[in-house]
Amino acid sequence: MTFMNGIRAGISIAIGYFPIALTFGLLAKTTGLSMWEATAMSIFVFAGAAQYISLTLISKGVDPILIVLNTFVVNIRHFLMTASLNEKMQPDARWKKAIYAFGVTDETFSVLATNKSDTIRTPFAAGVILISYGSWVVFTAVGHVIGANLPEFLQAAMSIALYAMFVGLLVPSMKGNRKVMLLALFGAVIHSSLYWSGLLSTGWAILVATLGSAILVEMIYAKKGSAS
């Protein structure tokens, strides 16, 4: 569980961030942000969905305060992820945890949380986060500078990367484990129904679906446990 193991485990994230960051840099340019402004957002915020939405809102001339509020709503799901991750992380000094907490995204969380070992060591987490963050920041800048996208077929094909990674992380844990299968299934079904009914915006929908599934399955298994 060294730093280098972490770097290796983070490579699929770095690959997945590449086309998204590139496009973000390009879109930021067309929105009128300078290279520094665009890259600074990737450096200080490091949250893909929220950054994309902010560009749309900036171009529509939405009040910056509302953009900040929207960012909060979109990213509040990380609260659940870091609370969950905390159960698995090696106990460590608060200041160290405060530093790597910055790098917890949907993707880094997924890689860390599905890791086979019981405890995640801090250097491993640092490796996963650093290569992901590096890819995100560098390719934001590159996208702005070259101001062009990948060839269309490649751009389209690469848009599957992060989802394929989520699948690749989920399936091995799912094999022969009904609880994991139920958790993923409920998460998917609740999120999909919230999406298609238009009841909640994406940020809240993921949070509600995750928490709903996690609680529901825990209750089912608690009942099973007491019955046997």
Binding site: E87, T114, A184
Partner: peptide
């Protein structure tokens, strides 16, 4: 217990339905 369930629940929610809209 609920917190330990989060990773798999969140993966399900992150994959669907978004993977269909790439």
């Amino acid at each position: 217990g609920v917190l330990r369930n989060i990773p798999y629940a969140v993966l399900g929610a992150l994959i669907f339905p978004a993977i269909l809209f790439v």
